[in-house]
Nucleic acid binder design. Sequence first.
DNA 1: AGAGTATCTCAACACGCAGTGAATTACCAG
DNA 2: CTGGTAATTCACTGCGTGTTGAGATACTCT
Lengths: 225, 225
Amino acid sequence: MPKARTPGPRGAPERPSPRAAAESGDQHRLGRRPGPTTTAQTILTHARDQFSRRGYARTSLRAIADAAGVDPALIAHFFNSKRGLFEAAIEVPLKADMPALVEFRTSDKDPVERLATMYVKLWETPAVAQALTAIILEAGHDMAAARAMARFMYTWVGEPLVSEMGVDHPELRLRLMVGFMGAIALQRQFDAQSMLARLSPAQVVALMTPTMRFILTNPLPGEVA
Amino acid sequence: MPKARTPGPRGAPERPSPRAAAESGDQHRLGRRPGPTTTAQTILTHARDQFSRRGYARTSLRAIADAAGVDPALIAHFFNSKRGLFEAAIEVPLKADMPALVEFRTSDKDPVERLATMYVKLWETPAVAQALTAIILEAGHDMAAARAMARFMYTWVGEPLVSEMGVDHPELRLRLMVGFMGAIALQRQFDAQSMLARLSPAQVVALMTPTMRFILTNPLPGEVA
DNA sequence: AGAGTATCTCAACACGCAGTGAATTACCAG
DNA sequence: CTGGTAATTCACTGCGTGTTGAGATACTCT
């Protein structure tokens, strides 16, 4: 016998709501669902979506759970806390064999143009775009996001580029360039009727490459050098 | 006639807490304060501070009221709602006789350098910097902020510049340039140990001017033109 | 001086939030 | 089949939030 549990110290006297007994084709309403389990991934996907569109503070766990078709308590079960979910959501889902990354390494075009191409292509993958957007939105408020941003910037932009083409004052120039690139991506993401959003990926690459190259190579004024 | 109001349907039976009668040198604790009234301005100042540092959603009216040394209800009295307070806070406090603006109009240097100088000087005025920061932070979430940003961008950047020096595809180029400028300002504001934040205003101007000029004047690639 | 109005505090409400513990169901290894 | 473990929902608790109404105090205009 499953032992003598107190039959229910909570309120709810003798099953008040059998819960609208005859729901349409709906079967089980309680306990584990049959079939394989993909729920954690589903939650993570919708979390990235919400965090990237509304920011951390405006996003409620209930909204994510609703979108994922799941009880809010499941989030606590899989990710411990809202913070835990957020930190999982801003883990940029990059794998070295993604086409954009492979092409960056194997192409023999100009490094800057290759970088711009890779960047724009990365933003075309929704999960990546959402993670990056969430990171940028919270970078000023959340240390984890700030670190994620620095890591992304160093690993996927700074290190590959500087190691290939020499650039003086790399920290300064990279900050300027990444700011420029981020501003473009954000405008494309949020202001859908902006000119920038109407351009094709190839057009955006062609548009941003010259300025990126200029930022990296133009002689710095005497005051700062 | 003031008519017969129900004398008090709320709880609070016969004044429960006379509130720690003898506070140090503190006099009046209730009712209007003696002397001239500057409270609305005080609230607005602290609101800008909080909104710019923590964003709209993370900022509570109670926090603002505490910082201003005032009861939260006063905010509702002066600004109606949190939203009302925010919309007042993102009204960029610019007057045409501010030194930075005057200098922009009267100097005879290169227009782009003048613009950069004005911009950096504007960000040195805390109230302006805070309003602009709050606008940028919420531009993706709040229509009022988005409009404020467009207005600022057009009135104080686009119109003066385009009217003076001809630039083709102004919308596209202005978006790129303003994104670049905003990214610099934000990095200086939030990442205090960044290289950018350690530069003097004059240095930042010297650093950003060439890129701004490049963005405005470099021939656009055939794909977009 | 006195009526009327603006400023200000207090107490409370209603609501949404993140988080918790127990109960229920399905999966899986022996 | 059977026992253990993971997945899932439910009911609930505090807590913090924006907002409200009433009452108290000061200022202002005649």
